[in-house]
Write a protein that binds this DNA or RNA. Structure first.
Lengths: 363, 363
DNA sequence: CTGAAAGCGCTAACAA
DNA sequence: TTGTTAGCGCTTTCAG
């Protein structure tokens, strides 16, 4: 930046090709490439239209007053320059971000994408934009993600569940950002909570199996330390058994994320130890589907020889000739409700969207 | 803002509770709520630590030089104030965003969440943050999303496929932002493209069915106008048939998104018209799974009576006692590769990550 | 109805 | 090693 910095800036600014169309990048091979014009700014539009910046701003946001003539001139200039407003600048200036952060535990089964889908739809209607991160069911990672999302000063931040590390909790409670906890109601919400009771899901599941006469019951699940909601379901489930003077005959949990394969393997293990099982409660539908596949391969008759019960109410379970007995959760609706509350800056509250028992044909 | 605006601002700024803990909001009921301190700023940290702003900035980003003593003082002050840097401001100032935009067609089957997952993982390693939007397989919506994502001045923008509206294309080609097109290589990429050839997928699928001796073949698919990649697969598929002097016996496409239910319904319709079918090529695994379920319910033996072939290689298809014959696509890897190229500002290129035929047991 | 000017919170020269 | 000083591009008073 010695001799012609000003000229260079001017060129770049105006979209002209400066004298040197070749630039060097340290630590990368020298590459020739077309120098592109930087994006047009409000000021560019203003001077092109021959009006002040604030006028352009008002016109573009259709906020405040201006004459029709001015409006047309501004719109034309903007179109002509291919102007795309810079929301980073806009957000900074108006100190009210239109971003909503969402931290989901996982994207590898369809459950959270469905929640995201609901969030995203509703958010769009309200003029917000979703930013997301994945915690991989690790609280420590969630903590990092919380801090990094907060750095975008989102209008609201959504997280799954009510359990967080102390540090994450402190950040979330610091105020300034609406916090929405999703998919769980068993505990103390920080601000807004939208979901249902996982404890109750477990209880309803147990009552269903008991009502059908099953007594020799096993649990096949995935890593419970990471998935606290699955742990709560199991807790509710075992509570009901206990009340009836019963207990799980077998508990086969794999130290992995839930998956079809894990369900298959878990059931295999449970049956090896307890060939006389009557019913199995799975941590979710993916797991249950894996179990169902095992039964298919082994020719185990479902539910006569072995009853299977899942959780989530995924489409996959309901398409089978024998629909899976399970609990349907309102995932899209939870996302959409959360998004609406966030956008409308609702007061702190708990919203119970409930769940539905699908009797199905496997238990 | 008449009498004590300054005092109020000061209070807010300093986190004190101002005289009036109750504020009114036009167009909303008057609500009492605690006035919360606005987030601490760099300047707050600087004055708390007794150093200049730039020093704090350097320490916090660990960039530039500073003494160990200063570092400690700054870190303490920051921790004490619960300082979370404002990336909106940071981005604006450094004019280099750490955001990467991703526009996916849908979140309602697992395919794009898997791509997102790959993107997100790799992005994080490189210190970027993903922002996403869903186009619902509508080009017009994609156009809107492109404009609105560009407003965040992302470092890169990822979109699915090579087909866009003229306006969207113009925005994408405007330069200034790295564009990465995912999941398709049949056409002219704008900048970087990462994926595989859908035409070739169709061809390989057709050759497989022909090699197995199937001749009376139907196609069961979803809305092809919206899903151009599915259309390309079908095009490749039919091309191979044509080369052999053959043609599809039946073509049953539903005007909906792909789903298990649509696959079932589509196959039902195809069989109603052509009971003598030997094999069915589905637009994807969800559809094929629906077809498989229909066969199970009707007692149609697969593949002897009817062969089924899908696309995607989802876990669900492989868990069945009879693994689905299909094509596995490297979805997570595509996302991760795209993210890495974006983060490292790679030159324009096409990357073919290929796909894999899973012979399976249904065709 | 319109424009000038003061920030929003931070980064990046540039001096000191 | 540090602090001072311009902005980044926009929104928002506040005069005209």
């Amino acid at each position: 930046m010695a001799a012609l910095p000003f000229l260079l800036r001017l060129c770049l600014r105006r979209g002209m090709v400066p004298p040197v169309g070749r630039m060097t990048c340290r630590s990368a091979p020298v590459t020739a490439f077309p120098v592109r014009a930087p994006a047009a700014t409000l000021a560019d539009v203003a001077s092109a239209a021959g009006v002040g910046e604030s006028t352009v701003s008002r016109v573009l946001r259709n906020h405040g007053s201006f004459s029709e003539k001015t409006r047309k001139r501004v719109m034309e200039a903007a179109a002509q320059l291919g102007y795309v407003p810079n929301r980073i600048a806009g957000t900074l200036a108006s100190s009210g971000s239109r971003l909503v952060g969402i931290i989901v535990p996982s994207l590898s089964n369809i459950v959270f994408p469905e929640v995201l889908s609901g969030v995203n739809q509703a958010l769009e209607d309200e003029g917000y934009q979703a930013v997301f991160a994945v915690s991989e069911y690790k609280m420590a990672r969630e903590e990092e993600m919380v801090a990094s999302m907060l750095a975008w000063r989102p209008a609201a931040l959504m997280v799954a569940g009510l359990e967080h590390t102390p540090a994450a909790r402190a950040l979330l409670e610091a105020g300034g950002t609406r916090i929405i906890e999703l998919m769980d109601l068993d505990g103390e919400p920080i601000d807004i909570a939208v979901g249902f009771s996982n404890l109750e899901v477990g209880r309803v599941s147990a009552r269903h199996l008991l009502a059908r006469g099953y007594r020799r019951i096993a649990y096949v699940g995935h890593d419970l330390a990471a998935d606290t909601r699955a742990a709560k379901r199991l807790e509710g489930f075992e509570g009901v058994l206990r009340d009836q003077g019963l207990a799980l005959m077998e508990r086969s949990t794999l130290p992995t994320l839930s998956s079809i394969e894990a369900g298959r393997a878990g059931l295999e293990q449970a049956l090896a130890r307890r060939p006389d099982l009557e019913a199995v409660y799975f941590s979710n539908d993916d797991m249950a589907f894996g179990g169902y596949c095992l039964c298919l391969s082994r020719g185990i008759r479902v539910p006569d020889q072995l009853a299977l019960f899942g959780y989530n109410g995924l489409g996959i379970g309901q398409a089978l000739p024998q629909p899976l007995s399970t609990i349907r959760t309102p995932r899209v609706e939870i996302g959409a409700t959360a998004a609406r509350l966030a956008a409308r800056n609702a007061p702190a509250q708990r919203i119970d969207l409930g769940f539905e028992l699908i009797a199905g044909a496997t238990a």
